[in-house]
Design a protein around this nucleic acid. Structure first.
Lengths: 259, 259
DNA sequence: TACGCTGTATTACAATATAATACAAGGTGT
DNA sequence: ACACCTTGTATTATATTGTAATACAGCGTA
């Protein structure tokens, strides 16, 4: 990519650091424990480079090493970064009390998400019923077009932005019911714009009904979303709209960040 | 330190990466937004180095830059690392369902912590009453000697280890009531060993009563702790011991990681 | 207006990361 | 039990890459 080449030239870009971050980022859902050879495959680094960078991160406490298999995995220190972020995130600070209230009112799983590129990322999660753990962890990224939170954030943007997103942003089939039809996604977003909230069913996890409402800054820019996930065994979209949506919308509207 | 010198020599240690991580770690509770000059102060790097490393992290998406003040702050990408960790953390996976149950049973704030050096770090947090947000965020580190979770983890270790920790590990005065008397801390730990749980009051946050129980692996090694925090306006230690402690202990004992 | 303090940009230089090795240790299949 | 392959580890001479010094521009303060 020309992008990488431009960086090579740029004396303000330290490629060594980038390589290190590549190692840090190599771990994911399916890759929780990686040996040196795995790291080479995932990151595309030279064997020798992978060795040195992994070793450095190990010595810095970011990676643990299984003494038997000699494979690396993320150390608890990964979590410290989350703390630094959350402390600096004005929106999370502001929203937390309302999220706690909403969690108690509904007795259901409440999440808050923020946009990041073409995805949304979960910033606060308050599980209330047993569910897939990994799926309900902080920091999870999901394509904005798939998640109800992402769609409802889009619904508050310009027609232009919506159309651009719907036609160009990536999707991913998480369940059998995940909508891959971009026309249907557009309809859902436009519907959300009218109603003020977005409902979906089984898009990311099967057997889940979701209701999401946008959090907008004082000048109307959508900066995040609250979303409630309900077990579809007990909840239809209709019932969710009647009983849950008003509460979610109210909570979201009560949060008005100034920046 | 000779440690740093040893690293200088080590061809397997990439000092550039260390410098980059220093920038990443520069942000904390009191330092949520740092300019270049601030970064120089906090990290001890040269101005030119701070400039290049911060810029690199900015381009990689780890830092945001306030266009007006030109100061940096952590970007949402910080949270992705939390996700990688949580997904790889066997204990968190295992504990989550029990934590959810416990949260519903008690209707109180439930946390899970893991030891890291002389601290404990909060891995799962399920707030149930409005409280200081930053204090209840994932990834927060607290000296093990101060937190009830830390003490109860220590209580399952050898006399030797306990005495060593109590006399050498760091403490910190969070509130007026934080116990700085190491003798009293030792007593509290020994009491916890007898009872199977640890109770404290106002150690980290004022007006909070805490009950913690250890999570032990199948070979008896303490690998974490569950802890419940209660508003001291409504809860005395006695009432917490009677009504909450048994539930916390039961939940903790039901979690038995094999490794 | 002059000064100090930011953040930004460019350079010549050498320190540092590099890639190429070679070796040891398990694991696999024959 | 064998050779074979893959994995992690360690060492070196080399030049690529990060470095520190420097200069400049923008802003608020005195």
């Amino acid at each position: 990519m020309t992008d990488a080449k431009a960086r090579q030239q740029d004396t303000l870009f330290v490629t060594s650091l980038e390589k290190g971050m590549r190692i840090l980022e190599a771990f994911s859902e399916d890759k929780t424990e990686l040996g040196l050879a795995d790291l080479v495959k995932v990151t595309g680094l030279e064997k020798s480079a992978a060795q040195r960078y992994a070793n450095t991160l190990y010595e810095l406490g970011y990676l643990e090493k299984n003494p038997e298999t000699r494979r690396f995995r993320p150390a608890v220190k990964y979590l410290e970064m989350a703390y630094s972020y959350l402390w600096a995130d004005y929106l999370a600070q502001l929203a937390m009390p309302r999220l706690i209230d909403l969690s108690r009112q509904t007795s259901q799983t409440i999440n808050m998400a923020e946009p990041i590129g073409t995805d949304i990322i979960y910033v606060v999660r308050m599980p209330n019923h047993r569910t897939n753990f990994g799926a309900s962890a902080i920091g999870r990224r999901v394509p904005a077009l798939v998640a109800s939170s992402g769609r409802v954030i889009l619904s508050r943007q310009s027609d232009q932005a919506i159309r651009d997103a719907v036609s160009n942003w990536p999707t991913r089939q998480y369940t059998q019911r995940t909508t891959m039809d971009r026309g249907a996604i557009l309809d859902n977003i436009l519907m959300a714009r009218e109603k003020g909230y977005c409902t979906t069913q089984g898009q990311v996890l099967p057997d889940e009904v979701n209701v999401a409402a946008p959090i907008c800054s004082i000048d109307g820019i959508p900066v995040g979303a609250i979303h409630c996930s309900l077990p579809s065994i007990r909840w239809t979209i209709e019932r969710a709209e009647a009983e849950i949506a008003p509460l979610v919308v109210e909570a979201a509207q009560s949060i008005v960040p100034s920046r």
